[in-house]
């Protein structure tokens, strides 16, 4: 393809090809601190291609695909090219990664132990992880947590943090301007802005941590902590995993080990400050 870049995030290498320069330039700027992978054999190929021949130039419209793709993926505007590239990489992980159990969860680490947070989009797990990453924790990832099948450790996948709508201002206030990407207005998921993880998160992106606490956060509710049984935790994590079924027995072994080893709580929180208090308290108490 005309423009390309090879990137490594955690254990995975992506070759991103694009019919346009802009998405590749945006990626290159925001991933500048990540390992240079030029000329590497990539785990996945991502393609940002025109939805039709004319759409390369006229109202450019991106079709996101690659080794793994969805036939009915919605086309995206070139103005959202960075988001398209990120979605293309996520798609490869979600559909194609087999070396770890992939959990749709954020994770942060302290003292060699990991806090894993999972929930629906909008639960606040991503924002919470981003903010904890600025408050003494190491950010391991805002979207995917990788559960190692042999060691049971959580491995990082510290891609750019994707901030949505109200979370944008909250986080932008806490980090330096050069770590923020362009504001992408009116995407299918609302306004989106990417944040580059701190240097230590990138430098230690192959370093795992034993899971010590599992939280199911829910933003926008009265503060409340509820215990979660192992069965419920297991079920919700299988739903939060895109490759549980594909991994078969090793996936079963890893996930049962996780839910029997780490305590789980559901937390409702009305604000970031309330969430920090709850996380600190539960971490001291349980982890």
């Amino acid at each position: 393809m005309r423009h390309e870049l090879t990137l490594r995030i955690g254990p995975a290498t992506f070759r991103v090809g694009s019919a346009w320069r802009a998405p590749i330039d945006a990626l290159a700027r925001l991933y500048a601190a990540y390992p240079d992978q030029r000329g590497a054999i990539a785990d996945f190929t991502v393609r940002l291609q025109p939805t039709s021949l004319a759409r390369r130039w006229v109202r450019p419209s991106i079709f996101i695909t690659g080794d793994h793709g969805l036939a009915d993926a919605a086309p995206m505007s070139l103005a959202h090219g960075l988001l398209a590239a990120e979605m293309g990489m996520n798609l490869q992980m979600a559909l194609g990664w087999r070396r770890h159990l992939l959990l749709h969860a954020s994770s942060v680490e302290k003292d060699g132990r990991a806090l894993v947070m999972t929930g629906e989009s909008g639960s606040g797990k991503s924002t919470l992880a981003a903010l904890l990453g600025e408050r003494g924790w190491r950010l391991m990832g805002d979207e995917f947590a990788l559960l190692d099948l042999d060691s049971g450790a959580i491995l990082p996948f510290p891609r750019l943090v994707s901030l949505k709508n109200r979370a944008i201002d909250v986080v932008a206030g806490a980090v330096a301007a050069d770590r923020m990407g362009p504001l992408l207005r009116a995407t299918a998921k609302g306004d989106i802005r990417h944040m580059v993880p701190r240097a230590d998160a990138v430098a230690r992106m192959t370093e795992g941590a034993a899971p010590a606490l599992l939280l199911f956060p829910r933003f926008g509710h009265q503060a409340e902590v509820r215990p979660v049984g192992q069965g419920e935790a297991f079920m919700r994590l299988t739903q939060a995993s895109t490759n549980y079924v594909a991994l078969g027995e090793p996936g079963f072994a890893a996930l049962t080990r996780f839910v029997t080893g780490a305590p789980a709580r559901a937390i409702d929180f009305p604000s970031g400050e309330a969430a920090f208090d709850m996380v600190d308290r539960l971490w001291d108490e349980l982890a």
Binding site: Q230, G231, F234, F252, T256, V259
Partner: peptide, 9 residues
């Protein structure tokens, strides 16, 4: 078989 605290997998 994996017994959890509230059910068996």
């Amino acid at each position: 078989v994996c017994p959890l605290d509230d059910l068996v997998l």
